[in-house]
Design a protein around this nucleic acid. Structure first.
Length: 492
RNA sequence: GGUCUCUUGACCGAGUGGCUAGGUGCCGGUCUGCAAAACCGUUUACUCCAGUUCGAAUCUGGAAGAGACCUCCA
């Protein structure tokens, strides 16, 4: 299925450089991505992460790897920042909405999946939830206790960062900061008297009386710590060392550094070989996020209901907008940029649809293979989708020129172009035509009738009728384009 | 305060020590009964200052501005 076998370069946060991707095992690739915390609706930032790693997944598959893709839903354990009482976000939301925590979590899980489906992100092979893996997490805590890397205090268990740092491995290798830095700059947070050091993090947290999400453990009735789920579930589904661990850049510290410390402390191995992180979506230059309360949800994007939106944007526009920027750059939201993406995507898709109709010649006036090859090189160079897309637009220009009889293409090149474009646009970039619906057959039939009638009116120079048809269709959201070879139409 | 990153044309956004990224917009043209669309072409770019170099937007130093992480976060 792969057109070419290529080397893949990935930027590894751990090393701080791009390096060649060499899987841990020859036969398959394991990828774990930190998914959303399900206490609220998915926003544009979640979409970026989902799309980034969807591209990673698609490229790996395209290159012929057998990939197991795991992405979790965090439904327990994320404590509210500004309180020291161990509130759980999902639980807090549940209390506010008078629902079961599981009900809240599941509601947002489904919403997230509907949104990522619409964005044409392939579903991961496994989507584990934290609350379904309490036993596994308790096991990790036990191992860390046995090794003396964790201590119990008032029914809670904390990871002993200093001991780990001194006896096992340096803490902070992913974020490239030293324990000294961390120590100097840790803020004074309340509720830290249980810990030996302010930078120690919870592995198990004793639940306050009114807490309803709690499980039995050797230490207390409580719930697992913030970072533990990924360690436990990653290992369970992908093994001791898997290939790729992904997530947003804001997870590098402390989340992924803590995960590394736990995993290495408990099992001795780095959980993953390559650590990939997508950058943030910004809005007016500021990071978009729930905590900042400046986010636009995907539902709002799809229906245009947010006050900052000039119009609704369909999911493919949003996907294309994100792919026009590199995943490690911040991407600033703006209506103008989204509209530009919408138009560019339409142009690309129309050119692609035109390939089959191109006239074949004895020679090609341009090098199809080179452009396709360049496009594939780009995406294999740390998933550089903007460059790949630039090459696709180069092809658009050639396709349009051939259609206009200004350039030529051979039968072989045309077939290659068709196959390659389908593979790149649909399989790798995951872009699809929005139009397809169940009633397309009926609409097509009706439209061909209407178009025939209009063509007849025009040939009789009955422009009053032909204009009336055109205007009425426009009101219905159907646009007519007249050309030399007859008229075509499209849904606007 | 500590650590780090960024600053590209009207807008978005790649990239590189020397060769037009690309998209959108604008303008010009082609097409057209008209219009729209489409297509083609064009368009004052690399924050500032100094240095290295035959040559820097790209490397080094400094300045200004912006941002991220240090706390839950995609």
């Amino acid at each position: 299925m792969a057109l070419y076998k290529k080397d893949l370069l990935v930027y590894n946060t751990l090393k701080g450089v791009k390096e060649r991707f060499v899987p841990v095992r020859e036969d398959r690739v394991g990828m774990y991505v930190c998914g959303p915390t399900v206490y609220g609706e998915a926003h544009l930032g979640h979409a970026r992460s989902a799309i980034t790693f969807d591209i990673v997944y698609r490229v790996l598959k395209y290159l012929g790897y057998n990939v197991r893709y795991v992405r979790n839903f965090t439904d327990v354990g994320h404590l509210v920042a500004d309180s020291d009482d161990g509130d759980d976000k999902v639980e807090k939301k549940a209390q506010a909405e008078n629902k079961e925590p599981q009900e809240v979590a599941q509601y947002y899980e489904m919403m997230y999946l509907r949104a990522t489906d619409a964005l044409n992100c392939l579903r991961p092979n496994i989507m584990p939830i934290a609350s379904g893996h309490i036993m596994e997490q308790i096991e990790v805590v036990k191992i860390l206790m046995d090794k003396g890397l964790a201590y119990e205090s008032e029914g809670s268990v904390y990871f002993d960062v200093e001991k780990y740092n001194d006896t096992v491995k340096k803490y902070g290798i992913l974020s490239h900061r030293t324990l000294e830095d961390t120590l100097e700059n840790s803020r004074e947070l309340s509720g830290q008297q249980e810990k030996r050091n302010p930078f120690d993090f919870a592995l198990w947290k004793k639940a306050p009386k009114e807490h309803i999400m709690k499980w039995d453990s050797p230490w207390s009735l409580g719930f697992p710590g913030w970072h533990l789920e990924c360690t436990a579930m990653g290992r369970k589904y992908l093994g001791a060392e898997f290939d790729i661990h992904g997530g947003g850049m804001d997870l590098i510290f402390p989340h992924h550094d803590c995960e590394i410390a736990q995993s290495v402390g408990a099992f001795g191995d780095m959980p993953a070989k390559y650590w990939l992180h997508n950058n943030m979506i910004t809005i007016e230059g500021k990071k978009m996020g729930k905590s900042y309360n400046n986010f636009i949800t995907l539902t709002e994007m799809f229906n245009g209901s947010h006050p900052l939106l000039k119009q609704a944007y369909n999911p493919m526009t949003i996907r294309f907008f994100m792919l026009m920027a590199h995943y490690r750059s911040t991407l600033d939201f703006s209506n103008d940029a989204l509209i530009a993406a919408e138009k560019g995507l339409a142009r690309l898709m129309e050119a692609k649809a035109k390939v089959g109709t191109l006239k074949e010649s004895k020679e090609s006036s341009f090098d199809v293979h080179k452009i396709i090859n360049d496009a594939l090189d780009a995406v294999c160079d740390d998933f550089n989708t903007p460059i790949m897309i630039a090459h696709l637009f180069e092809l658009c220009k050639h396709i349009n020129s051939v259609a206009d009889n200004k350039e030529t293409i051979t039968k072989e090149d045309k077939e290659f172009l068709q196959t390659s474009l389908d593979a790149i646009v649909e399989d790798i970039l995951g872009l699809k035509d929005e139009k397809g619906g169940n009633d397309t057959q009926v609409i097509d039939g009706l439209m061909s009738l209407v178009m025939d009638m209009r063509a007849e009116a025009r040939s009789n120079k009955d422009y009053a009728t032909s204009d009336k048809i055109r205007d009425a269709l426009k009101e219905l959201g159907i646009e007519i384009k007249d050309s030399k070879d007859g008229a075509t139409w499209r849904l606007m």
